[in-house]
Each structure stands twice: as C-alpha cells, then as structure tokens.
Design a protein around this nucleic acid. Structure first.
Lengths: 292, 292
DNA sequence: CTAACTTACGGTCTTCGTAACCATA
DNA sequence: TATGGTTACGAAGACCGTAAGTTAG
C-alpha cells in the first residue's frame, strides 16, 4: 500500500468527484480510478458505491471507516516529518575555550560527527570565565570549561572529565633541561613567558606564586600558545602550561612541579539540565572516555 | 512513501541487523538497504548511524523519532483493516414476512444491493406475528411487518412505510366481475377462499366480519397465494387480499371495498433502536420511497 | 450529445534479487 | 577468513498518461 493512494482517496472523499481530485493532484483521472481500485483490492471491500444512476459519489460504510483511519495515518506522517525537521534544526549553543578546543575537543569531535551531533552545535569560543557567565545567564546551553578550583554554579550541573597537571617548560638550551621535577620556589630568578588567557592559567599562576610567597618575574605575555612555545624554545624565558597543551611537543623541555597543593587544570563539562533527547545524547557522548 | 518500507524499518529498529530483518521478511538483504535509503532520502535525514566499526547498529535521534511515528502509522493501518473486517462481517437479523418479501421487498432489494447492504442481512422468513415476538425477544434486529392495527411494542421503534387496502377478488367468470366497488355485507352468500397466513389476512377478515355481523362462508384455506388466486380464477370461490399481492394481476377481477372503518394492510418497519452505523444506514434505506 | 467514470495499452519509473564489492573483527 | 552492509545491474512489476469505451441524463 502506498501513501499516495491514501492521499488520493482522502481527497476524493472530500471532493466526491474523481475528475476534481485528479485536477487537485495534477494527474490524469484514471490515476485516481486505479488508486481507489488498488485500495479496494488490498482491503477486499468496495470503498465507494458505484451507482451509475447516482450522480453523487457515495462512500460505503467501509469507505467512511477507512477514510477516518487514512486521515489519521496521513496526519501521523505529516507530524513525523515536522518533528524530524524540528529535531534536525535544533541547535545546542556550545561553549569551548581555545585551549580545550585545540588540545582536547578534536578527539571528541570525531565521535560527535559519527553520532550526527556536530551539525547541532553552535560553537561559542571564549575563555572559561566568560563561558561560565554565559552559561549562567542562559546565553549558551553547554560548555567545556577549564578550571583550577571546583565550579559551583546555581542551576548548572558540572561533571569533571579530566584532571591534568600544570608543567614548567624550558628551552632545550636552558640549564634546567636535564631536570624532570622541580619546586616552583626554585624558579624565583627565572623570567616567565605567560599566557594572556581568560581565566585558568593566570589564576593557577597566581595561586602558585601566593603559596610560595614571591612574585615571579614576567618577561612577556602572549595570547598565543605557539608564540609562547616559540619564545620558550628560543630561551627568552621559561613558562608554565597545562600538560594538555604539551602532548608530543618536542620543541620544549617539560618539567614536573613537585609542590604540594599545586593547582590542577580540570576539564569540566557544565550545562543547564534539560529534558531534551538531543542534549542528553550530547552530554552522554561528551562523557565518553578519550585518550588524552 | 511505502508502507512496506516502514515495516522493514520498524523491524530493523528492533533487530538492529539488516540480515536478520531481511530473513524476517524473506527478502534479500539489499532490499532492506534500499528501503532504508528510500526513507532517508524522503525524510532528508539519516536514520541510522553508519559506523564503520559496526559493533551495534544505532539509530539517530531522527531515527528514534521516526520509529515511533512509523509504529503508530502501521498500528493505525492494522486497526483500519481489522475495523473493516468487523464491519464487513457484521450481520443484521432481518425479519421478512412472505407476502412482503414477495410483493414489496424486491424493489427495496435493488437499492440495498447497490448500497452494499444485502450482504449484511440474515433474513428470517416468518409471519408478522412471529416476527413481532422475535423482535421483542431480541432474536432479530429489524423486521418489515404487515399489520392491521398499529403496533405498540416496548423498546421497539416502528415506522409505517405504506398503507394498502384490502380488495375482493373474483373470477372473470363470476357475476360480480363487472363491479368495481362493493360492501362486504353484500358477500354473505359467497364462498371464500382464505389465506392461511400467520397474522394479517385472518385478522383483517375477522374484523370485517365482526363489523358486518355475519360469519362468511369458508370454502377453502390455503397458505399459498398463487393457489388461492388459481382457485379464485377457476371460480371455486371469491377471496380477500391486500392490493399489494394483486399488482398487475390479470387472472382475477379486483373489486374495491366501500365499508367505512375497513381494515388496512400497513407495512411497518420495526426495529430495536441501536447506535450502529450499519443499522442506521439500513433503516434509512428501507424508508426510501419506492413505487408500489 | 455531454459528463463522469472505467478499461486498454504502452511507456517509464520503482523495486528487488543476484552478484560483486568493501570494511571490520 | 567470516560477518555484515553497500553498490551495480538487469529483470519484473507498479504506476501513470493517452485514448477508447461505457453509462446515465
């Protein structure tokens, strides 16, 4: 059975005139005849009373009954299509800080594409602090955030996806290039290249400085991680970065910090709870373990 | 769009395995592939997540949504077919007295056939008195009844369809064959051929006799109208019949009765009121005017 | 004769099966 | 290599348009 035949039939129950219905669908009149015949053959009952003398086309009882069901079926199909369009057009406003976007998100992205979720994301790129505010004000729906301290926000649910350490990086030409671990306090004399970033690195850096009761010497501040790494490589100074941004990087030497109570760079999934299949699926997928 | 594709799809959402679904419908596996492709093309969205590393065939959100609608559509179709079968098999127990069946009903029958109603009738042939009882006891649903007096029955609705006169018939050889009207009292000396019929003719005959204070002479009683007419034709006696049974009959001569308060042969439609489209339609059709 | 539906016939688009192909475990 | 899905192609069938046929007014 064919949906087109049902449409012809339903229209015919309203027009009560084969010719008119044919014109309505811009098809030839016999097309309607055959559609009705197909339905009658499949159902095994006549749907119309074929009375030559009767100039008015009449439905049989079975025809009336079937007409109601046919309308319901067509309506259900229309609804189905409309619902799918709605689903397809649905967008999730997704906040992504640059560092996480560059070093963490790409591995998630592959999975999101496979699950047909990427096309639903409207990405907002901003620092974690800005994104926190936007999340709270409702400007975005979900965000991946980098944080030093646990996040507490009313109406916002948070899930920690990964905890990473901060590392000290130095040039291969630097004296420290043979060390694998060091205390922050030992770096009092070193000039630092720091990241001009919205939230996390400055906060962590200040925290470490406060714990160690000294004010590190800032040689230069850049918003670009590659510029920062380049300057460290050229031994303009040393720096302080999440290990996330250092994966497989051979241009600089990485040194662990041995400080107790040292800050960590946590990647947190934050969102406003919603009853929404698309959001649910996204939240679910973002929590899937990935290889850092 | 095709219902078959929907069936394939719904089954596939349960099987999560193209091959299994193909086997379920005894078709080749590519048939399922194409069915899904057709649906996806028509809806404009992927329904399944085509993950090369096929651990498990997964539905997209659109697929889940559409699956629900598809099930609803298929269920509606199943219901439609079941309802039509129920409608088709529905029977109305229909009481029909012999005289009305022979002389009145045939004209109705043509219309009932055109309206696809005849196949729903289960006819019970019996005298009007018997049918009245069966109607009241619920053994039949509708009846056409012949009556002399108005029918009063609890729970039974009655509609008079036609009023016909009783006539006197005589042989063409009989002395009265030149008369067109007569009083019943003038027939005291005549031998009557009477109808051995369930209810109406004997009752009417007794009523006329009572009004005229005499006991007519009964020459012979037969249950068969043609036998009766034959005997009248051969001048064995005269008789008394509803005009209904005399239409176009050339074998006997018909004489009107001039008595006041003479009984009439009423054709009454009687039924127990029901909320039932089929019954409604039958009652409606039976009331359509016909040419007597 | 006209209006309206049905039947006949031929062409075209759909659908399906076989078989070959591709990807993953 | 075995399992499971997709693509290619030819055959069968469904669908539709033109045109002719039928029936009632």
């Amino acid at each position: 059975m064919n949906f087109r035949d049902l449409e012809y039939f339903v229209q015919l129950t309203e027009d009560r005139n084969y010719t008119k219905t044919a014109q309505h669908f811009a098809v030839s009149q016999p097309t309607i005849t055959y559609a009705v015949k197909r339905l009658e053959a499949e159902l095994g009952v006549p749907l119309f009373i074929r009375d030559q003398s009767h100039h008015q086309l009449d439905l049989t009882l079975a025809g009336q009954e079937f007409g109601e069901h046919a309308k319901a079926i067509l309506q259900e199909l229309v609804t189905a299509k409309a619902d799918i369009v709605t689903l397809t057009q649905q967008k999730i406003r997704f906040g992504l800080p640059p560092i996480i976007g560059t070093y963490y998100f790409p591995q998630l992205a592959k999975r999101l594409i496979q699950q047909n979720l990427m096309s639903h994301l409207q990405t907002f790129e901003a620092g974690s602090a800005t994104l926190q505010q936007q999340l709270q004000s409702g400007e975005i729906d979900v965000a991946l955030l980098g944080t030093v301290d646990p996040i507490e926000m009313a109406q916002i649910k948070t899930i920690t996806l990964a905890k990473t350490d901060f590392k000290i990086i130095v040039s291969p030409k630097h004296d420290l290039q043979q060390q694998t671990a060091i205390k922050f306090a030992e770096l009092k004399k070193e000039p630092f290249i720091t990241l001009k970033e919205g939230f996390v690195h400055p906060a962590a850096f200040r925290k470490l400085a406060a714990i160690n009761h000294f004010e590190p010497q800032i040689a230069y501040t850049t918003p670009d991680i590659n510029v920062l790494k380049g300057m460290v490589h050229e031994n303009v100074g040393i720096s302080f970065l999440t290990e996330l941004a250092l994966k497989d990087d051979q241009s600089v030497h990485t040194i662990n910090l041995t400080d107790k109570n040292q800050p960590h760079f946590d990647i947190v999934l934050a969102y406003r709870p919603q009853v929404n299949p698309l959001m649910e699926k996204l939240i679910d997928e973002l929590q899937q373990p990935i290889n850092l």
